[in-house]
Amino acid sequence: MMQPIKQLKNIQTAFQMVRGFALLIAGGAFLMTAAVFIYHSHELKSLNQRVYVLANGQVLEAFASSRDAQVEVEANSHINRFHQHFFELSPDEQLIANQINAALYLADQSAKRAYDNLKEKGFYNQLLAGNVSQEIEMDSIQISLEAHPYEFTYYGKQKIVRTTSEVIRVLITRGRLREVARSTHNPHGFLIERWETLLNEDIKVTKR
């Protein structure tokens, strides 16, 4: 009688061992599957963030990021780019036209009015007649991202090179940024509104 009972216990023990082993394998397989899924999800997300850009015949790899993560960087770059186009001028009529056209793609009618006022006063003709060149250097940009459109103030310096002198001027402007669709002419997707010059005066004059 003891022999069948012993055999039955052995069978139960073996079954429990097999079941435990099977559960262990199943648990390991589940963990491995979950790890593989997480890894591939991470890799897929990383691949989706990669952008390939063709520049000068070469394929360059870049990483995309969300608009919110880059808004401050892009906003500062947009403002700086506008000021460079608007204020960096050489005594070349076509170059001036190209610079102003590029600037006006980045701003609204407030910039167009400023350009028209300078043109009406003969500013650009004086640059051409006097062989005057202008450069601009940004000091800083203060921008508030708490509310859209984003208010900003630009601080910079102008260097104006004339035939007989070199002038350094302080330049302070302000305006606000509105988000718009990106384009070839407006890669950052912002439009400067209500732009105005607060200060633009000589701080240093050197004879040449």
Rank of each mutant, 00 (worst) to 15 (best):
M1L: 05
K6Y: 13
R178T: 07
I38Q: 09
Q126R: 08
E120T: 06
S183W: 03
A103T: 04
N131E: 14
G156Q: 02
L191I: 10
T184V: 14
L47T: 04
Q94C: 00
A26R: 00
V180E: 11
T197Y: 00
L31D: 12
T173C: 12
R169T: 09
M138I: 13
L23D: 09
R113T: 13
I96H: 02
Q158E: 13
S110K: 03
L145S: 00
A55D: 14
L128R: 02
V59H: 02
Q49W: 03
I79W: 04
I172Y: 02
R194E: 15
T184G: 07
M1E: 14
K112P: 01
E196H: 06
R176T: 06
H40M: 12
N101M: 08
V51Y: 11
I160V: 15
R81C: 02
Q99M: 07
R113C: 00
K121P: 02
T197Q: 08
E179W: 05
G57S: 09
E135I: 03
Q49V: 00
I141E: 06
F152T: 01
K159I: 14
V170D: 15
N76V: 05
Q158M: 11
R81G: 05
Y124H: 03
G175Q: 03
Q142G: 13
T13K: 08
Y155T: 11
E179V: 13
T33L: 12
H148K: 10
K204P: 01
F152K: 04
H185F: 08
S65A: 13
V71L: 13
R50I: 11
F21Y: 10
F21H: 05
K159F: 09
I100V: 12
S90K: 07
K112R: 12
L118R: 10
K9N: 08
H85S: 08
N98H: 10
L127P: 04
F63I: 12
I11D: 13
Q94E: 15
Y155P: 07
D116E: 15
E193P: 07
A64N: 08
Q134G: 06
I168F: 10
K157I: 05
K204T: 11
R67D: 15
L31P: 03
G57M: 06
K6D: 13
Q158T: 06
S66Q: 09
F123D: 10
A114I: 09
R208Y: 12
G175D: 08
G122Q: 05
T153G: 02
